[in-house]
Simulated scan of single mutants.
Amino acid sequence: MKLLILGTRGIPARHGGFETFVEKLAPFLVARGWEVVVYCQESGKGEVSESEWQGVRRIHVPVAREGAAGTILFDWKVAKHAKREKGLCLTLGYNTAIFNIVQRLSGQTNVINMDGIEWRRDKWGLIAKTWFWLNERAGCWVGNHLVADHPSIKEHLATRVKAEKITMIPYGGDEVLSADSALLQPYGLTHDQFSVVIARPEPENSFLEMVRAFSQKKRNHTLVVLGNFQPEKNAYHHAVMQAASDEVIFPGAIYDAPVVQALRFHARFYLHGHRVGGTNPSLVEALGASCAVIAHDNQFNRWVAGESAAYFKDEAGCSLLFNQLLNDTTRAHSMKEISRKRFHERFTWQQVLEEYEQLLSSWCQPPHRVER
């Protein structure tokens, strides 16, 4: 059984949720007897090279361009290279699914994780939205089978293809039972005396609504807003920071995993304002850290967090929740317990990885099926 993993920048993880997922899945499958190949994006010019990481064969593909153009070029090179390898493909994301016609035409089986509904995101302009919409359609066609990470994503994809062509497997997370509170000291924070927002600072993630709601009056509490804010370049970032009271702090983007873990684990509340997407990795990680969650009220967040979270529709609703919950220690403790229960119900890595192996194994058995 051989698996080629496409669609990420590679391992070990330094970027997003898909890279973290591959960092979990690839060694898991190797331990189960699989041969696993992961394509890794490298900067610069040169020849394709190989290395090994925890028993995983890594193929390093250099690209001379940076940003989105570099990622597109990398995906094209990977699609062509993977065609020459024997094995099952797992492609993570559909952003360049049109390139996977190479796999389809060569008879190579390709399972595609269709991620979120990218073309609905507010941050993209018309050209980008059109590109994503076309590639979502392409992914539905060229993929032999599709993975949806959320029931609502499966429902959406079922308007494009037959439901039996789609398997729902969510994202996973690690359980956090403790975290070093000393890591909070550089930020002047103490256990349970702050709440935290961890996300990309974009309009669809409700930053402005949450900061305004918190800042309406003195809270005797600190709101920590993580993210790469550039108020001098980005009008939305400027508006969020202008709306903040002196009880809101902006420590920037923090990539040190133990620090982020400590911020989640020791927070009174974790705020999740995402309005678009499927199973969000950050929300799953919050459940794994037993966070009491305050989340935007939509079908994506409600399925993930379930009854463990308190939900708001708008700024007024968020402000009301702050008024009701910030000083209610009993309610916060109860919400934390329910979050841990929800995490164990559906989102442990063991559950998620075993479901992936079961699906992928079914596609390694001859004869190869072609689902349309």
Rank of each mutant, 00 (worst) to 15 (best):
D75A: 07
A310W: 10
S152E: 15
E164S: 15
M168T: 06
A213M: 06
Q216R: 13
F229R: 02
Q358Y: 15
K77E: 15
V211L: 03
I112N: 05
Y236K: 00
A31Q: 14
Q350M: 02
V224F: 02
H221W: 03
Y94H: 01
Y356D: 03
T159C: 14
S51C: 15
A295Y: 04
C40S: 07
R268T: 15
P186Q: 04
E35T: 10
A267L: 06
P366G: 05
S308Q: 02
P27G: 05
P170G: 01
K217H: 05
L25T: 04
G278A: 04
C140S: 09
H221Q: 11
P366R: 04
V48E: 01
I112Q: 00
L134M: 10
I169C: 00
E118F: 03
C364T: 08
E85T: 12
P203W: 10
K313P: 09
V63A: 10
A243G: 04
V30C: 14
L189R: 01
P62D: 09
R104N: 05
G70V: 12
C40W: 08
L320T: 15
E371G: 11
N113C: 13
L263I: 14
K80R: 14
V260R: 14
H145P: 03
L226I: 02
P281W: 02
G17F: 01
A97P: 11
L92G: 07
G173C: 00
E155Q: 09
E35I: 00
E202T: 15
V197I: 02
I112V: 05
T71R: 13
G173L: 01
N113A: 04
A26M: 13
P170T: 06
Q41F: 03
S334D: 14
E164D: 11
H296C: 14
E204S: 15
W363Q: 07
I153L: 09
P258N: 08
T167N: 03
